[in-house]
Simulated assay, not measured.
Amino acid sequence: MNFLTKDQINKIANILKQLLADETILYLKTRNAHWNVEGPDFQTAHVYFETQYNELQLIIDEVAEKIRTKDVYAPATMSEYLQLTHLQENKIEEYNSLSFMKELLNDYEIIIAFLNESIKEIEDLNDVSTSDYLVGLLEQHQKTAWMLRSHLK
């Protein structure tokens, strides 16, 4: 039995759609870093970015499935993602690990801010399971942001 109204479900699904777009763009930007990183730390950075995009791939699937549990279709085209995302597609000037990490850290911080806002909004809509899921995702992204920030010091 569903205790959420159609309006509540649509609001939650719209938040999740934006999150899916953000995670997908972040995934592609992380793939770009993995493919194109250069420099003396190439091997370490290449493997690190691979670990990150593998984690993001799982997150993308989970978010899309979370949308589907609301009986709403998940967006699945780049044009939709580009309309929904909070992230920017910036041209990287230097293909070294620090440049990529700065760019990705900025993106993680944007998603962290969005998650913080969204958790409060979804809690107000009384969707405990989605709120709980987003709290776990927030913690995961905060840890990745910390690692990126630590590397940049």
Rank of each mutant, 00 (worst) to 15 (best):
N2Y: 02
F3Y: 15
L4N: 03
L4Q: 06
T5G: 05
K6A: 14
N10T: 13
N10D: 15
K11N: 14
L16M: 07
K17A: 01
L19N: 03
L19F: 00
L20I: 08
A21S: 04
I25C: 00
L28R: 00
T30L: 00
R31N: 06
H34V: 05
W35A: 05
E38S: 08
P40H: 12
P40Q: 12
D41R: 11
Q43C: 11
Y48G: 08
E50A: 01
Q52F: 09
N54M: 08
E55N: 14
E55H: 10
L56R: 04
I59R: 13
E65K: 09
K66N: 12
I67M: 02
A74G: 09
P75Q: 00
T77L: 10
M78K: 04
E80S: 10
Y81M: 00
T85N: 00
H86T: 09
H86E: 07
E89S: 00
N90K: 15
N90G: 04
E93I: 12
N96S: 02
N96T: 08
N96F: 07
S97N: 09
S99V: 06
F100L: 05
F100R: 04
M101T: 09
L104T: 02
L105C: 04
L105Y: 07
L105G: 04
I110C: 06
I110F: 03
F114L: 05
L115I: 01
N116C: 07
I119D: 03
K120P: 02
V128T: 13
V128H: 11
D132H: 13
V135E: 11
G136W: 01
H141W: 10
K143Y: 14
T144Y: 03
L148I: 08
H151I: 06
L152P: 03
